[in-house]
Design a protein around this nucleic acid. Structure first.
Length: 674
DNA sequence: CTGCCTCGAGTTCG
DNA sequence: CTCGAGGCAG
């Protein structure tokens, strides 16, 4: 290509690549496919390689990172990056307003609320439309020059419209890493056997301070710009809100969740709505920043020490607390696994008094080096279930490291741990603790579905020796039930009837209810469809079992082993005598042909017009399948209110997402086409 | 053998 | 919901 031609083409490409980067990373609304983008980018790169003189400092090819530097140079901030005072509750927020009103002759304020992103503050300067420097906050007065790293963040404009922007100015923002990007990064590291990063914030901090900016370029950093630092001319916005709008129109990525509020009550509303839905975001926030909108008023109120009077960080209640690990207890699971759990000095987190948390297994406890008596960090993150994050102690001699007991705390049998397995097991399958769990499993919804059979009733039946194995359950009389604690005449009859009614459950439910190791609801369903009754399953050889779809050597062995135990066979025989011997019609797995054939649906959140069961059977009736988690094979994600992390994953993977209305419409359409 | 995807098992508070 | 691990396709 001739140089003049190449120059023209390079200019066109730079513009269009920059535009597509902006649409993708700032607006989140791409116009072209990734492949189309790649081809434009590669063409530009090729031209610039051929004619190095055509390369410009704001070319998108300059975002890939540069060779490592020895150390970062210092950058002085012409106007210091301030910190923010905190308010931890509504009273402190009111006190803040009251103080400002006193100082400002009882003026009334307009506020701007923004999310407080949990990331790192940076200052970016532009000169004549070009990005000049990017610096960390440092101590507020002097930071580090991380320009090369900042350039690799795709949503940072390398240049802005010279006509509309001041000739020199500084913007401030927060660099962060999305949760999904963080998880993806850790997944990649796990694959390469590298150590895992602790959390998105620290990882973002480490990444921004990478001496080799090519590494930074490969990491999913992003930025939200939230204010103008200084400006040399031209621009005289009158308020913070207007500043944000202007920054957005210049092409900066400004967080979309901001609100102008006429009163503190509105601020409270904004704050409360985000306390509820902070987990729906793909990045962490730790509060709401409240600023007085008017710049004139800001100047009038001024700054005390390092905190401006006109702004405050209204922090969310912490979801992490430090508490004392009083002891480590052991639960024995249905499979005989010994499951350690933390007994904690009760603390309130997010409205709930937490006093227990699972500790998974011995290795996990040792990895976190938790010892009895330690102060530990406890977290109730997005999910309801709390977990112990780490120990706060550092003294290596503070007490003995934890070991799972050598003997089962219930039956006293020596526990075993197979090489390569994470869990310790009690080998005694008739251990009362195991039987208690089995009885609960046998009775639960999805198994034999015996209503009224809860923890306390199961315990009493076992302790009174009324039920020593599963078959005994069907010999229990109304009178015996009524003799137990908290069992009146009515409830005894109800439970008795529920037990009798459970005799008619289909084969797959019975197989599931037996609690054979590795045989869950799905495997039980497969087995129930392949074998006509329990007898034929019982006599099946391992080879026959393996030939069944979805059954491999491990599961086959487990099933065969179950049917070799004399106690198990005795129970099955007795159940049969009592009339529990369901038959199934053997055929190839039923395939319903319908409008949803070949589609997998995943549901998250709470639906309002359907129960989950109804939604699932509506899908199944139309030939669709229900998936547990979002994967490439998921056709639709159906979302209700308060969707879980599946939504993020679906967005990440580009899965079609249906809200409840869209789902209803799809069901109806399916009906007409069926 | 290696990378999916799916299944199983355990999970806290009110 | 999340983890670990079983099953299976490439």
């Amino acid at each position: 290509m001739e140089k003049s031609q190449a120059s023209k083409r390079a200019e066109d490409l730079r513009q269009s690549v920059s535009r597509h980067l902006y649409r993708y990373h700032v607006l989140d609304d791409p116009e072209i496919s990734d492949a189309e983008y790649d081809s434009l980018f590669l063409e530009l790169q090729a031209i610039e390689e051929q004619h190095p003189s055509l390369q410009t400092p704001d070319s998108p090819t300059q975002r890939v990172g540069a060779p490592p530097v020895e150390a970062f140079g210092p950058i002085e901030h012409p106007t210091p990056l301030l910190s923010l005072a905190n308010a931890f509750d509504s009273n402190e927020l009111k006190a803040w307003e009251a103080r400002n009103q006193r100082l400002a002759d009882d003026a009334s304020f307009e506020y701007v609320c923004e999310l407080k992103i949990d990331g790192l503050a940076v200052a970016l300067t532009y000169e004549n439309g070009l990005l000049k420097t990017g610096a960390t906050r440092g101590d507020g007065v002097r930071g580090e020059d991380v320009t090369q790293n900042i350039r690799t963040i795709k949503s940072v404009p390398l240049s802005v419209n010279k006509e509309r922007a001041p000739s020199k100015f500084e913007v401030r923002g927060e660099v962060y890493m999305t949760r999904s990007g963080f998880e993806k990064l850790n997944a990649e590291r796990a694959k390469e056997n590298l150590s895992l990063y602790a959390n998105p914030r620290n990882t973002a901090a480490g990444t921004l301070r990478q001496l080799d900016s090519r590494i930074t370029a490969s990491r999913p950093l992003d930025i939200f710009i939230y204010s103008l630092g200084w400006v040399d001319d031209l621009w005289t916005p009158t308020g913070h809100w207007e500043t944000l709008i202007q920054l957005k129109s210049l092409g900066f990525k400004v967080n979309p969740h901001m609100r102008r509020c006429g009163s503190l009550a509105e601020v409270e509303d904004f704050y409360k709505s985000w306390v509820e839905s902070r987990e729906d975001l793909d990045y962490s926030i730790d509060g709401v920043v409240v600023k007085i909108d008017s710049l004139g008023m800001q100047q009038r109120l001024g700054i005390v020490a390092r905190d401006p009077r006109w702004a405050i960080a209204y922090k969310f209640p912490p979801r992490q607390k430090v508490t004392k690990l009083l002891d480590i207890g052991i639960n024995v699971g249905r499979t005989g696994s010994l499951n350690p759990y933390a007994i904690l000095s009760p603390v309130e987190i997010d409205g709930a008094m937490v006093k227990m948390a699972t500790l998974h297994n011995e290795d996990d406890i040792r990895r976190k080096d938790l010892r009895i008596g330690d102060r530990v960090l406890l977290e109730r993150a997005g999910e309801v279930i709390p977990h112990v994050v780490k120990s706060m102690e550092t003294d290596p001699d503070r007490g003995p490291a934890y070991s799972v007991p050598r003997n089962c705390p219930v039956s006293g049998d020596p526990v075993i741990r197979e090489p390569g397995e994470a869990m310790h097991y009690c080998p005694n399958s008739s251990c009362p603790a195991q039987f208690h769990e089995l009885l609960k499993h046998f009775s639960c919804r999805g198994s034999m579905d015996i209503e009224g059979m809860g923890v306390s009733l199961a315990q009493q039946l076992i302790e009174t020796n009324l039920v020593k194995n599963l078959a005994d359950l069907y010999d229990v009389t109304v009178e015996q039930l009524a003799s137990l604690d908290r069992m009146g005449e009515r409830s005894s009859e109800n439970v008795f009837n529920a037990i009798q009614a459970s005799k008619n459950r289909p084969l797959d439910r019975l197989i599931f209810a037996l609690g054979i190791c590795h045989v869950g609801s799905e495997t039980a369903r497969v087995l129930g469809a392949r074998f006509p009754n329990l007898d034929s399953l019982r006599t099946a050889t391992e080879i026959e079992l393996i030939s069944v779809n979805d059954i491999g050597p491990v599961v086959a062995k487990s099933i065969a082993a179950y049917f070799k135990v004399p106690e198990n066979l005795a129970v099955i025989d007795r159940l049969k005598l009592m009339g529990i011997n369901p038959q199934s019609v053997v055929k190839d797995l039923p395939t319903i042909v319908g409008p949803f054939s070949g589609m997998t649906f995943v549901i998250t959140g709470t639906l309002s017009e359907f129960t989950r069961q109804q939604a699932e059977s509506a899908i199944a009736e139309r030939g669709g399948k229900i998936g547990v988690s979002v994967s490439k094979k998921t056709r639709y994600l159906v979302t209700g209110t308060a969707p879980g992390s599946k939504l993020q994953k679906a967005q990440l993977m580009g899965t079609s997402i249906l809200d409840e209305d869209a789902f209803s419409r799809l069901l109806e359409q399916g009906d007409t086409t069926a």
